[in-house]
Amino acid sequence: MAGSFPSEPLSRRILRDETLLVLALSLGASGVSALISFIGSVTKPGGLKDQAATLNASAAPGRPWLDLAWQLFGICTALVPVALVLHLLVREGAGARSIGFDLKRPGFDLTRGTVIAAGIGSTGIAFYLLARALGFNLTVVPEALPDVWWKFPVLILSAAQNSILEEVVVVGYLLRRLDQLGFSPMGSLAASSVLRGSYHLYQGIGGFIGNMVMGVVFVLLYRRWGRVGPLVVAHTLLDIGAFVGYALLAGKVSWLPTA
């Protein structure tokens, strides 16, 4: 239908402003928040490893149904930037398929994503334990939800929300826009990976470096495959392992730090 999409390519200024606004509404703002949190942690008496960063906490202690409502509300609202990005891609005439966020190749996405998660998972745990032991990281508490029936479903939904938000915005959308703005491949890789590290800085230097390295790997794989699908699968599996694994193992094994 005439008028469905722009008749001319969007100007560099519009693309730049649009990208900055998307980041300001999502993970760019999270990066600033994480930096402020990190400054607060390093200026607080005591070492980083003696402090804790809790990821999935109760929003209404002692009131499970209200808590559930807040948890679901938080997950849904966190995905609004993803809806915005997909809308902008459709407006451009590209759509979700242009970044590989679709169900066109489910087998490919699931297989590659599982392999990535297996490769990164054990390395990530080892790096976290080392960074914490050296005093570069806070103790990360992946979940502190009450023991109610919805605990594990919410943790799985939270893992999926994190992965969809990060991979769609920080990899698929951001790299597309940076390419359109004339960034070099290395410049785009640096911008995406540093951004990923920045919003994990609340965990400490280890969280920043580890996630930045993960960002480099994810950008290279995205460039190779042209799909965020495998990255979403991998990230979801990694977060499920962290959230659910902590819930099952915390206090039961000696090697897992707890707050």
Rank of each mutant, 00 (worst) to 15 (best):
E167V: 01
G172Y: 07
R13K: 08
I164L: 08
I125R: 12
H87T: 00
A131F: 01
V217P: 10
D239Q: 04
G226H: 02
G100R: 10
S193V: 03
L27C: 08
I39L: 15
R105I: 00
T111G: 11
L231D: 02
L10Q: 03
T123W: 14
A94H: 14
F243L: 05
R91Y: 01
L68V: 01
L145N: 02
L15D: 09
L189F: 03
G113S: 03
T43F: 13
R112F: 10
F243H: 09
Y173F: 13
L130G: 11
G121N: 07
D147H: 14
G28H: 13
V194S: 12
G3C: 07
L221Y: 09
A234F: 04
Q71E: 09
I156Q: 01
Y199P: 14
V42I: 15
G3V: 04
K252I: 00
T54M: 00
T114W: 01
L10P: 01
S163E: 11
G215I: 06
Q180L: 05
T123H: 08
G187E: 10
L238W: 13
T123S: 14
A69G: 04
E166F: 12
A59E: 05
G40I: 09
G229K: 09
E8M: 05
G215E: 06
F5V: 05
R91I: 00
F136M: 13
Y199S: 12
I205P: 04
L138M: 11
P64C: 03
E167H: 01
K44D: 12
V141H: 03
W65F: 06
S41A: 15
A191W: 08
S33L: 13
G100Y: 01
A60G: 06
G100H: 07
L178A: 08
S37A: 11
L138S: 04
V216Y: 08
M212W: 14
V228G: 11
T54I: 10
V90N: 13
K252T: 08
T114K: 01
I240M: 07
L221I: 15
S122G: 09
A250S: 11
G3L: 02
L15F: 01
Y222K: 11
